[in-house]
Design a protein around this nucleic acid. Structure first.
Lengths: 350, 350
DNA sequence: CGGTCCGTGTTGAACGATCCAATCGACCAC
DNA sequence: GTGGTCGATTGGATCGTTCAACACGGACCG
């Protein structure tokens, strides 16, 4: 068969012997079309292989059904992987909901705002997903002012609640570390150390709180024992070696997989240099591919659930003003429970 | 200032006291507009904050300047990271060239072709970037038939050259492994083993060839010594332990970072269990974040250069037929030299 | 001096969809 | 039989841009 010009609404209408508008209705408001007519139109669409032209639709309706997502210039270290996994999950969920993801990059926040402007007003992107929120985030304020739909993955760590009253979804790191610590306590460990990041990061402090919570639930547990270091494998290794000098410590809870990976090496060395020392159980955070690879118990961030909620929240914001349901703050602020993935490193006898 | 309706060409035209078309010309064909007029129009554009509407433009010109990129449903293991890094690089390069990246997912190849169709004819995506080409790839054939611009990251491993005469870019793995092996030989190692994937994968066999090449350049080198295993940390550890039973082996060249990571653990154990054994040098492939984290020498894929060439090849395909320059096969098939990143694991005394 | 061409600018039509108001027919009530 | 209501369908206008054709004045040329 020869390659004909792409069929339009008009073509389909002629074929089905109805008007343009009726064809449009079949697609956008099927209930107003009589059954017989609808079948005829659908048949014509099928025969001609008709596909609507989104550019034309977007021009008329001012809706693109496209979401913008910023990807950081270079993926930094192991933890950047969570973002990558999120990106995959988001693409999948969005596609299922009839949305597309468009990528962009930018340097600093100001640059990013400029890109939002570009994408929104020029390309007609309907909304944005922001990852990596940080304190004093100017981006969220700008988007709020412009009344552009957006969701952040990551709660606002800002003290200023009024400026941060937007839709967000986050992982409950506190609860995740709680579960990890609790898992070790249940296995009989009593002196458990925490390897964390330097104080002051919202995420890190939150996770640390989970460790404290868990220790408090078991009266016979030793008091909190913390070592702090910058994220990274070598730093983690050093911190672990340090804290493991105390032979009573039989378990380590780490704030990240990078640090846990370093701790793993330290533990391995110890097994050789001081074979009589009690074995050490270990947990990480993020459940990165590396954790899976080296059989490290870790707290997994269910990025697919985050993505699903993000799309849901965006869709509700994209509804035309008259159909929008007012959502309470509780509905717009979602905290998702992470999942503890138990693997070999945490299952050593006490 | 009150929030006015978004300015259009018409608005700008009125302000600058010219016609619509002249404003359009200022943006798309500045040379046909007199200098004085152009300045007046540009001033008006600036004052009004005018931004063209891409939907309208796309409707008229049938060009969206958007590229489609498939992201795999779930990032699998450590090697999936190369793709993620490529995605970041591609976004950056594309944006600089005035293109946007749109994501989609799909199950099998047939499903993927359906999505190409959707994106191309419905959303008006101009071209595609394919990663993960494999033998007997039906997708490239379909895209070629439809005359849709596309580039693959990964050469066609197919025997059938005629069907695979499309634009592609790939990393020269053979040369990369050659460099790694050569690096070890230069350091004085003579009995070097290769930990590879099972025979039959195009990529794996290609890399293996690089190992053989390098050994041949040094007459005093021991004959090739290969262990093959599925990709992964535990499998790599076992394979390494096996081949390292031979005390003469002082260096390992690994086909991937995952396997190298396993080998690293095996080497570490050996250092404790048999301290008198000569130390072992080690190299990986992909230069993943993990490699950086554990200080592993690895062969880096310069994804940014791949991305740059990909965008270039796509742009040249997107030129209107009458302006297109015919490119030789050599121009359309790009093999990029990887870079050996030397770190601690390869720098052990012989 | 008339014709052609070039540089500059304008106007109407088209791209393919949706919104809106109007029409048409059938059916029902009075 | 007439008017009213309702559901189904229609034609025209519209979104913002670019394309095609043409108008105008001046330079250039035979």
């Amino acid at each position: 068969m020869a390659h004909r010009a792409r069929p339009t609404l008009e073509t389909v209408a002629e074929r089905a012997e109805v008007s343009r508008q009726t064809v449009s209705n079949v697609l956008n408001a099927p209930h107003v079309v009589a059954d017989a007519t609808r079948d005829r139109v659908l048949a014509a669409i099928d025969e001609l292989g008709y596909r609507p032209n989104v550019a034309a639709r977007q021009l008329r309706t001012r809706r693109s059904w496209v979401l913008g997502l910023r990807v950081p210039p270079a993926s930094d270290g192991i933890s950047g992987q969570v973002l990558d996994r999120f990106l995959h999950a988001l693409t999948e969920v969005a596609q299922q909901a009839g949305l597309r993801i468009m990528l962009f990059t930018s340097g600093d926040d100001a640059d990013e705002v400029r890109e939002y402007q570009n994408l929104h007003s020029t390309a007609g992107v309907d909304g944005f997903v922001l990852a990596n929120t940080h304190a004093g985030d100017g981006r969220t304020r700008w988007l709020t002012e412009q009344a552009i739909p957006f969701v952040t993955f990551g709660r606002p760590w800002d003290g200023d609640r009024s400026a941060a009253d937007h839709a967000w979804i986050d992982i409950d790191g506190r609860s995740g570390i709680h579960a990890a610590t609790r898992h070790l306590l249940d296995a009989g460990h009593r002196k458990i150390a925490f390897l964390g990041w330097p104080e002051g990061s919202g995420v890190g402090d939150d996770r640390y709180a989970g460790y404290l919570d868990a220790l408090r639930t078991v009266p016979t547990a030793a008091p909190p024992l913390v070592r702090r270091c910058e994220d990274g494998v070598p730093t983690g290794m050093a911190a672990a070696a340090d804290v493991l000098a105390d032979d009573d410590v039989t378990a380590l809870v780490c704030v990240s997989d990078s640090i846990a990976l370093g701790a793993m090496a330290a533990i391995r060395d110890l097994a050789h240099t001081r074979p009589r020392r009690p074995a050490v159980a270990l947990t990480g955070f993020d459940d990165t591919p590396v954790a899976r690879a080296v059989d490290l118990t870790s707290v997994a961030q269910p990025v697919d659930r985050v993505a699903a909620r993000a799309v849901g929240l965006l869709l509700s914001q994209m509804r035309p003003a008259d159909q929008r349901v007012t959502m309470s703050a509780a509905d717009r602020h979602v905290l998702i429970e992470p999942r503890l993935v138990v693997r070999a490193t945490s299952q050593v006898p006490v």
